[in-house]
Amino acid sequence: MPSPFILDRTSVTQVMAWVLAALLPGIATYVWLFGPGILVTLSLATVTALAAEAAMLKARGYAVKPFLADLSAIVTAWLLALSLPSLAPWWLIVTGTLFAIVVAKHLYGGLGQNIFNPAMVGYAVLIVSFPVQMTHWAGPNELTSVHLTLAQSATVIFGGDMPRATLDAVTMATPLDALRTGLLQQLTVDEVMTHPIFGHYGGVGFEWLAGAFLLGGLLLWALRIISWQVPLAFLAGIWLTAGFLNFFDAGRFGPPWFHLFAPSVMLGAFFIATDPVSGATTPRGKLIFGLGAGFLTMAIRTWGGFPDGVAFAILLMNLCVPLIDQYTQPRIYGGADKEPRA
């Protein structure tokens, strides 16, 4: 084997492990503010993802051990689980995870080959196919009268008997849902915002969750596992679009801080849009990718059919990556300032 003969210590496994670690503050906050149900979702998604990954690797003639050890399947599973409603039924979680691992990842060629973020593909499939089940969000403990234990959450998720009334007492519309519904009922933003779910910036509890994801994201950035371009551009894209709309008509469009402090935005900005495999690679490309995803997220939230648009925005931008990369090749050492394009 020719040079170099020494390597830096980082490995894919390490990178993935850090991503998982950076999700922990978010998960802890989730459990603290929304109850332990998310742990069931996370575990189920993890087990499903590992099983699917192992089966696919075997079927494709790859060694199972080194590829399972890269932890990428678990990252996908966790990201999907954190995007799903915390009391989503088990089959929803399994279907989403299977779709993410089998179709979005392995049918595209496995690790490093998928052009779409697998977790977001799983999410998109679920929200398109099962919109009703995708609203089973547990409300923040602060606002709900009933607090489910871990076992109760598991019962809900696995479809066990649970009085309808209890379930209704636990689940709640997310702030984004509430805003959307309110605006559709011709209410102004200020009127909608009187609903108890709205907190200082985002929703009650939700804003803390967003903060926790932000914290984890900053950790990843400090470790240079993600670059600053994508999250910053993504957040800027949302803030600028929301700010512009809000400035225009504060009655019909939510304030920019509210849009920024949704957990899905922080998760998307720091953990999903930064997925290197399906994202842009050049520095300028990353900025365009982030800005585009932010703008599309706001566009879908404002004019689209879904309350949140992070997943679709990122998938749409994934689609543009080859184009973005080709046209944003950086100037090389000693290169001309303007590069001729092929």
């Binding site: 690797l57 075997k58 003639g61 790859y62 060694a63 199972v64 051990k65 080194p66 590829f67």
Partner: peptide
């Protein structure tokens, strides 16, 4: 793929 051949599970 080589990994599969040498360390194949």
């Amino acid at each position: 793929k080589k990994i599969a051949e040498t360390e194949g599970a």
